[in-house]
Design a protein around this nucleic acid. Sequence first.
DNA 1: AAGTGGTCTAGACCACCGC
DNA 2: CGGTGGTCTAGACCACTTG
Lengths: 242, 242
Amino acid sequence: MADLVYRKVFNDLKDKIVKNEFPNKRLPDERSLSEEYQVSRSSVKRALKVLADEGIIFKKRGSGTFINPLYMKNKTIFHYEGSNLGITDSLKSQGKTPKIKLLSFKVVPANKEIQQDLFLSEGDFVYEIQRLRLFDDQPFMIETGYIPIKIAPELTREIVEKSIFNYVEDTINKSVTRSFLSILASPSNEQDQELLNLKPTEPVGVMEGIFFLDDGTPFEVSNMRLHYRYLRYNTFVMLNDH
Amino acid sequence: MADLVYRKVFNDLKDKIVKNEFPNKRLPDERSLSEEYQVSRSSVKRALKVLADEGIIFKKRGSGTFINPLYMKNKTIFHYEGSNLGITDSLKSQGKTPKIKLLSFKVVPANKEIQQDLFLSEGDFVYEIQRLRLFDDQPFMIETGYIPIKIAPELTREIVEKSIFNYVEDTINKSVTRSFLSILASPSNEQDQELLNLKPTEPVGVMEGIFFLDDGTPFEVSNMRLHYRYLRYNTFVMLNDH
DNA sequence: AAGTGGTCTAGACCACCGC
DNA sequence: CGGTGGTCTAGACCACTTG
């Protein structure tokens, strides 16, 4: 992954942007970058495309490529980038230690809502997994997930305390590649306040989502409640036209 | 726009998918499509990339390209608007009447932050427009926007009480087609509580964004504070791999 | 006119899948 | 092994912006 040409250009440019090595907020033109990195202009374009999709840069035809000023501002430790969600990655990359505390792990019958979300039938069972995620010993997210037992019949506490997605990729040989997410704000409840160290006036950011395997099978429905300072979802939006 | 090669391939394929012209849920391989449409394989790939980004198809290396079996069903269950945001539209569609109450309308010098966000220079002026948006006489959003006067030199209270974007499209003949948005949760402040009828424990959802004209010029930087029950951002997310 | 991003082509080689 | 998608190159021409 990391030794792909466009990936290297992407990583290097992102690095330089973060280190503020383009103080005029402008990147060199594509042809210069192509020369500098000794790669084709197509590969440069591909790298820039990904940067643009993540909202880090934007391009002005005829003018050049510029750094999105919102990207650097008010960066929370934890941020999601549109079309690329990397929970553990984005944490690790900053040299921090993400941890998981397992709050509960059960097998329960799927209720109506979960049946619909995961395309299950009456009588199907799911794992109910509640985890607290920490980041440098600071709790930031309560995550409640439901996974059909028939998709991953051998989940254990040990697996669940680490990465479920990695387990699935290594063992079932399928991968979780996409999801539908809903993002909203909510007042904190007592559990939130206790586990995330919140005052009653402080809210949580909520991300609800369904994760899919690469063959389209719904794999998990998840409800994530985040300390409000740790949620910042950055996205690039195309308005009505294309 | 629609006469781009990859766009035509995209539209044609999407059309065929919707009409169920691939009953085996599988698309022809890229080289055949390239031949069929008499375009390069790169253009086929580009069209397929867009289809995949929209969650309509997925590609399996070594196997082929398949139609996401959930694509049709999902439309009723989720309404994902990622990559297509229409605030007033989505309100109108529910048969409700959106209204705008103008809270303040001034011309002020752009501060450093706004200068950076909108690529302005020292001494440039911007409109500062604060509006309360209502929905069936129920206030749901406080919106503070900054627009360079040099882009829209003739803004008036009358325009600002309606749609700024429509004015821009009709008059300047440019359109607002893209934005970068950051979405987060925040405790409500006193103004929020008063204008949005919130209790102190109830939060707001915040959307900060820069809106761009179709030529890439930053047009407006906007801060939107929404009653938490009215913010729900739905999006389709591709995870780490492609 | 020069510079910059956008689109498109043609072709090469690689990596993975299934028979 | 053949078929498929993934990556990459080199170069052409177009469309828009800026001085």
